[in-house]
Design a protein around this nucleic acid. Structure first.
Lengths: 183, 183
DNA sequence: AGGGATTGTAAGCGAGCGCTTAGCGCGGAT
DNA sequence: ATCCGCGCTAAGCGCTCGCTTACAATCCCT
């Protein structure tokens, strides 16, 4: 699986051959089929596990406090840091979705909807409580998630900032974006 | 080229066959090779043209006014609207970079650096003039660009908001993110 | 009207793809 | 001591890929 993550993240699913993965794992191509019935099944295993991790990160952050402002800060900080720290997995999670077979796609699409719902609901609650000021909670939630997701596209091990520092900075930017009072 | 954009945007470069493109253009596979020496050359033609358009959008927006705040509003509005309106081209531009041969990649990478530089310099100038308040102009510029780029990933023709409306909303969010006085 | 350039087609080549088959070595339960 | 089953390899099958070749129709310029 690690070899698959590495290969898919670097070259993309369709540009990766089963021989690439096997070679990167120090095995023969046939060895893959002992563990996964197909190349697509390997992608699904990686993608589902990655999505479950991302969802867990967001869920725990959302439940860490009652204050919408602090909860949102935690979500953005951890979500961004996760995309930076685990940027190889995150790249597969965020950008190889389209390569999944339909049934498998539906499963991870549900996990993605869960993530979006948590963020959208928290923005909406913050607006109701007067903590945030945004025109459209849906658009704001989209923008917040975009900030995190796009980190997977450009972050590399040679980036100067640590995932945690980047998370803190993005957390600040996000709260200001939401018009949070005194952030 | 249009058939190529459509195919690459929908399935990704590596998952697209020359027969797909030819079929979508109502031609035989061999007809492609009258116009482009290879599938990669077609991708490059699309990618370069798309990057040049995006750069032009940002450049014109940046030069439209002397005020950093208003210039940044124009940049984000137009950059976001472009990614929504031309989301098929934008998808190829933003997410099929890695499929380009090295020499061709360098050329579009330079166009991308131009775009980033304009945004980064404008953030820096705004900070100097006291119009913006951000900890790190580089990070802020990254975040601003991420907002626009990620639109290409999720925007579809069935989205409820028009590209222009979406641009206006993102423009507001962006200015608040930058701590712009009175936005 | 003639003729080269342009734009297309039908057919198919060599290579590399995902995946299968047949069989081997070895750790652990009996 | 035996032997089963798991994890693996070598070899290769059938297919589709990007691209080429040989040739035909059409356009435009004189």
């Amino acid at each position: 699986m690690l070899a698959g993550v590495e290969s898919f993240a670097q070259r993309g699913y369709h540009a990766t051959t089963t021989r690439d993965i096997a070679g990167s794992a120090g095995m023969s191509p046939a060895a893959l089929y002992v563990h996964f019935p197909s190349k697509a099944a390997l992608l699904f295993a990686i993608s589902r596990s990655g999505h479950e991790q991302a969802l867990a990160v967001v869920q725990e952050a959302a439940e860490s406090t009652d204050s919408p402002v602090e909860a949102m800060r935690e979500i953005v900080e951890r979500f961004v840091a996760w995309h930076a720290r685990r940027h190889t997995v995150a790249r597969v999670v965020q950008y190889e979705l389209g390569a999944l077979p339909e049934r498998e796609y539906e499963i991870v699409a549900n996990l993605r909807r869960d993530i979006e719902r948590i963020v959208r609901d928290l923005v909406a609650r913050g607006v109701e409580e007067g903590a945030f000021t945004v025109a459209d909670p849906g658009t704001a939630a989209r923008a917040l998630l975009s900030l995190g997701i796009d980190v997977a596209r450009w972050y590399s091990d040679r980036s100067r900032k640590t995932p945690e520092v980047l998370g803190k900075e993005y957390g600040q930017l996000a709260l200001r974006m939401l018009g949070a009072a005194r952030s």
